[in-house]
Computed example of a mutant assay.
Amino acid sequence: MGEKGVTLEELKKRMAEFASDRDWDQFHSPRNLLLALGGKVRKVGELSEIFQWRGEVARGLPGWKEEERQHLGEELSDVLLYLVRLSDVCGVYLGEAALRKLQLNALKYPVHLSKGSSKKHTQNNVNAPAVADSNGDC
């Protein structure tokens, strides 16, 4: 495989082909895919187990064995693939939806209130005046 930088559109196309080749479209209703994705939520638990006894893990996972990285990738992919398939069947353009969500999050977490803070947006004082950051931006 070795394809770095694959797009959501390519994943969507491949998932559709995968399902069609196996005559699984009949089973891929939004409800069924959502239930299958819900089952994959337990994969988050499996992801947690991968990290559970390691303490804080540095970015890039230094010191991890290749098989550990591969296992992590497989667990992450399980969730992603169901999500991509569900969005396709529902006619939601996941990339566009994700960009829109980023825009909404930028409104909820303005830089001048959120930079360096782990506070939830409901804890920010949105009525506070904007303070220029070190770049002079508000």
Results as ranks from 00 to 15, higher is better:
His71Gly: 04
Arg42Thr: 04
Gly136Leu: 09
Pro62Thr: 11
Tyr109Glu: 03
Leu76Met: 15
Gly60Leu: 03
Ser77Val: 02
Gly91Thr: 06
Arg85Lys: 07
Glu49Ile: 00
Ala98Asn: 00
Arg22Ala: 05
Trp24Leu: 15
Trp64Asn: 07
Lys65Cys: 08
Lys101Thr: 09
Leu104Ala: 14
Gly38Tyr: 04
Ser87Gln: 07
Asp133Gln: 12
Glu75His: 08
Val131Trp: 03
Leu37Glu: 03
Gln26Tyr: 05
Ser118Met: 13
Lys115Met: 14
Leu102Thr: 14
Arg22Thr: 05
Gly60Arg: 03
Trp24Ser: 01
Asp23Cys: 07
Lys43Phe: 07
Ser114Pro: 06
Cys90Leu: 07
Gln26Glu: 12
Arg42Lys: 10
Arg22Val: 01
Ser134Arg: 15
Val6Asn: 12
Gly45Val: 04
Leu33Glu: 02
Asn125Ile: 05
Thr122Cys: 02
Trp64His: 10
Gly60His: 04
Gln103His: 10
Arg54Asn: 03
Ser77Ile: 04
Leu72Ser: 07
Lys4Phe: 14
Thr122Ser: 11
Phe51Pro: 06
Ala19Glu: 12
Ser117Leu: 07
Leu83Gln: 13
His121Arg: 08
Asp25Ala: 03
Asn105Ile: 09
Lys40Trp: 00
Leu33Gly: 01
Ala36Leu: 06
Arg22Ile: 04
Ala19Met: 14
Glu68Leu: 02
Trp24Lys: 05
Leu102His: 13
Gly39Val: 02
Leu107Glu: 13
Leu8Cys: 10
Leu33Ile: 01
Ala98Met: 04
Arg85Leu: 05
Leu94Arg: 02
Val79Leu: 05
Ile50Gly: 00
Pro129Thr: 07
Arg42Ile: 03
Ser77Leu: 12
Trp53Val: 14
Lys4Pro: 08
Pro30Val: 01
Thr7Phe: 06
Gly2Asn: 13
Gly95Cys: 02
Asp21Thr: 11
Lys108Tyr: 06
Asn127His: 13
Ala97Gln: 15
Lys12Phe: 00
Thr122Met: 02
Glu74Val: 12
Ser117Lys: 15
Arg42Trp: 03
Val84Cys: 00
Leu83Pro: 02
Lys115Thr: 13
Ala16Ile: 11
Gly5Asp: 06
Phe27Trp: 11
Glu66Thr: 15
Leu99Glu: 15
Val89Asp: 01
Leu76Val: 15
Gly2Cys: 06
Gln26Ser: 06
Glu56Val: 11
Asn125Met: 02
Phe51Tyr: 14
Ser114His: 14
Val44Ala: 09
Asn125Phe: 01
Lys12Met: 05
Phe51Ile: 08
Arg59Ile: 03
Lys115Cys: 13
Gly60Pro: 02
Val89Lys: 01
